[in-house]
């Protein structure tokens, strides 16, 4: 949400400057990512790090507190209205397999694919990635092995925030709109997708994201027919949760995640 709003502001500022569209978007992305990284880092330092050894619900409450703060900070800065996304992007339409796709949507898919590949390489092919996986597996042991877990966790927050910033920009570009409250449902669905795929598994998260998107739009489209008109498309959001609940009940470790049995 912050990413979208920052990018939007930058774009609005630069839109009049007559720079090429490509440059404007790039600058906006960079600004959004930078701001989000800084925010992510600060939050981790102030609100989560001191609580790493606290009772497990304490970080949850600070997370809630932080999201309330961010949301309202955004509201103070950008107001409570919807912001239209400046129509600086070319929107040519293409027909593929009978579906209409805008060039923007193609770009979004490409960027997403690019980012995911980058992330997979980062996590599986670099020293940093290995340290990250070790930290998530067993923090104290990772620390004993010489991993600076504070640094790693900070870094994870920074990367996560940057990704969120890019995603925020894409969402608002696609829907041509940005709003201070837009992050909430998205965050929830992001989590759903991650759980659907199996937490800690990028390929799984990607699969989860795609499946969730498909289920949602198809579900919303056909739910009326399925229930004989009893339930309409307003039930779209229910679908996401319904799928989530089913997956968790029948495959608690997600679609791709390994089965871990609890040791007694």
């Amino acid at each position: 949400m912050i990413g979208a709003m920052v990018a939007l502001t930058v774009i609005k500022l630069l839109a009049a400057s007559g720079l090429p569209v490509f440059v404007i978007i790039l600058v906006a992305l960079a600004a959004a990512a930078a701001v989000c990284m800084a925010v992510g880092y600060t939050i981790e330092r102030i609100a989560y790090r001191p609580l790493r050894r606290a009772p497990k619900l304490a970080p949850l409450i600070t997370a809630i507190g932080v999201s309330i703060i961010l949301q309202n900070l955004a509201m103070l800065i950008w107001g409570r209205n919807y912001h239209a996304f400046p129509p600086i992007l070319p929107t040519s339409q293409h027909e593929i397999f009978g579906a209409t796709i805008t060039s923007l949507q193609v770009a979004i898919v490409l960027i997403a694919a690019l980012m995911m590949t980058g992330l997979i390489i980062l996590i599986h092919r670099t020293r940093l990635g290995r340290a990250m996986r070790a930290t998530s597996e067993n923090p104290p042991i990772a620390q004993l092995m010489g991993v600076n877990i504070n640094q790693i966790i900070s870094f994870t927050f920074i990367i996560g925030s940057a990704l969120a910033a890019v995603a925020g920009l894409m969402v608002s570009a696609n829907y041509s709109i940005a709003h201070y409250y837009m992050g909430f449902m998205l965050g929830l669905k992001a989590f759903t997708a991650a759980v659907l795929g199996g937490i800690g598994n990028i390929a799984g998260a990607v699969l989860g994201g795609i499946l969730l998107g498909l289920i949602e739009s198809l579900g919303a489209g056909y739910i009326g027919d399925l229930t004989g008109g009893f339930l309409g498309s307003h039930y779209q959001d229910i679908f996401a949760f319904f799928v989530l609940i089913c997956v968790l009940i029948f495959r608690p470790s997600g679609l791709v995640g390994e089965k871990v049995s609890e040791r007694a």
Partner: peptide
Amino acid sequence: EALRMLLFGLALVVVML
């Protein structure tokens, strides 16, 4: 309204810390 929620969020974080 935003200020009030801002303070509230802040209170949550501070108490938990």
